[in-house]
Simulated assay, not measured.
Amino acid sequence: MTIKAKKRVRFKLNLLMPEWADGAEVYLNGIKEDRPILASTYFGIEREWKNTDRIKVVFSYNFRLKTMPDDKNVFAVYYGPTLLAFEHAAELIFRKQPLSVLKHISRVDADTFMLNDDGKKYIMRPFYLIDDQIYGVYATARDYKL
């Protein structure tokens, strides 16, 4: 981002960190900010700005779940901000806690992910790439023991 001003101006710049932004890093003129960055909050930088100032935000993409509001055992899987779809015709039911599913997901290539559930392998792709495939975006966890 370039801030154009004829003279130096002091103001606070607030960067909105999205809900999936755990692990984000903010750099000001090539130097990493050492304050904690929290998802779903603003990261403020107040200073006297110059035309040559540069801000860089680096996001860390991680797998995460979003559960249904009325049933915490029904969930969708995201990679950063991207909803992943299971290329699978049947309802997906896992016999483990929802969060433990994340440990079994790996990245195959830029647009393909694999969930290995006790020997069963499920292909996952970003929802926006699904065209004619049979897919589902929700899975259910049940019959698991704590």
Rank of each mutant, 00 (worst) to 15 (best):
A85S: 15
V101H: 03
K120M: 15
N116H: 09
A85T: 07
F59I: 10
F43H: 07
I45R: 00
R8Y: 07
I31S: 13
I31V: 15
L99A: 13
E87L: 15
A85Y: 14
A139R: 01
E91F: 07
G30Y: 00
D143H: 08
L146Y: 09
D109F: 00
N51L: 11
Y61F: 07
K12T: 15
F94N: 02
M124L: 05
R10W: 10
P81L: 02
M124H: 00
H104F: 14
W49F: 00
D34Q: 14
A85I: 10
A85F: 07
T67I: 05
L102A: 00
N73S: 01
A139C: 03
E46H: 06
I3T: 09
L92M: 10
R125F: 00
L38F: 14
T140F: 06
L15V: 10
F11N: 00
Y128R: 06
R125K: 00
M1Q: 12
Y138M: 05
N62L: 12
M124N: 01
T41N: 07
R64T: 15
I130C: 02
I93N: 06
K32I: 08
D118K: 09
A21K: 04
G136K: 10
T52G: 04
T2S: 13
A89L: 12
K145C: 14
D22S: 12
Q133T: 09
G44I: 01
L13S: 11
A21D: 08
T82I: 09
R10V: 14
A90W: 08
V108S: 09
D131E: 10
S40N: 08
K6V: 06
D111L: 02
R125T: 01
Y122Q: 02
G44K: 01
V101L: 03
M114C: 11
F113A: 04
P98W: 04
R54Y: 14
N29F: 01
T52Y: 05
N14E: 11
T140D: 04
N14W: 09
L65K: 02
K103D: 15
L83G: 00
Q133C: 08
Q133A: 13
I93Q: 06
M17P: 15
K72H: 10
K96T: 12
A89N: 13
K66Q: 07
M124R: 02
